[in-house]
Design a protein around this nucleic acid. Sequence first.
DNA 1: CTTTATGCAAATATTTTGCATATAG
DNA 2: CTATATGCAAAATATTTGCATAAAG
Lengths: 167, 167
Amino acid sequence: MSSGYSLGTVEVSSSPQERFADFLQSKGKRITQQRRILIDFVFKRHDHFDAEELILNLAQVPEGRKVSRPTVYRTLNELVDSGLLRRMNLRGRAIYEHDYGYPQHDHLHCTMCDKLIEFQSSELSDLLRAVAAEYDFRDTGHRLIISGICSACSATRHRRQTPLDLV
Amino acid sequence: MSSGYSLGTVEVSSSPQERFADFLQSKGKRITQQRRILIDFVFKRHDHFDAEELILNLAQVPEGRKVSRPTVYRTLNELVDSGLLRRMNLRGRAIYEHDYGYPQHDHLHCTMCDKLIEFQSSELSDLLRAVAAEYDFRDTGHRLIISGICSACSATRHRRQTPLDLV
DNA sequence: CTTTATGCAAATATTTTGCATATAG
DNA sequence: CTATATGCAAAATATTTGCATAAAG
């Protein structure tokens, strides 16, 4: 076993905890009990989640009850700034996912069951890079969500009401 | 001049007004003064806009003042449902654009000046279709936004504060 | 006339903020 | 000790909804 932090598929040089600590230090911010609780929570249990889910999960353990709602929101912003989390918008609210030690990927979003399926495509990255270049655009990232109906939902014909907005 | 409704680049068989009327009829909804005002407004002046902008613009003419805020929101939803408008999410709020007689396209979003640049790529469409197929996913559309700094902003080094969320 | 739409005010949902107190360094 | 963080309550933002009245068909 290496000294690296294992993510199952990827091995990186430091844990999210360490990276967050570095980020905070570099900004003159403090490593508080709440921030420690939050980063542990976020990197232990969740894949895709929103603020409300996180808050509900926190409420289920004594440790978690030490963190207030505003602090959750404030810290989620810091985690995004630090590059540890990636934020996207689904049905009008922010959804977060790990963005550390994770390969770049995009999503298929099932509008029936709300499931997110990740996929990777280097062809896609190349294509987007080329598009940006064509417009002299300094590309700092992208969000792509393909909406539709996943195979499971296609089979079961479960209906869902709100088509509403994607992405 | 043909009997078609001209959009500058594209020529389509009926006007947005007609299409909206058809949509409303098909749903047993009524063609009201407010809906008429709104569709005229939306298809005369705007390209990318949000609800607030539209409401401010409406407030500037007597005609527009006949339409209340809730009706604007309700009608925007109908316009999206009818396929006349496309909705996306930028910095947490809904942005609308014409989606009728318009070729499918995606966007580059400058996070400095907030400008949206449209681009088209058939390669991209093909690629996304292939991805969806690979997952037995019934693709009903996608949203793609490449974030970054446009050439103008790269030149002028105008700074902007909030990096915040994309898409 | 009957049903759908509108406007108003209020509600909802999500996220942010001011300020007094607590705590990290 | 001093500056930053937290919690609380409240504000801000964006959008939706209940209900009485107005208007379309």
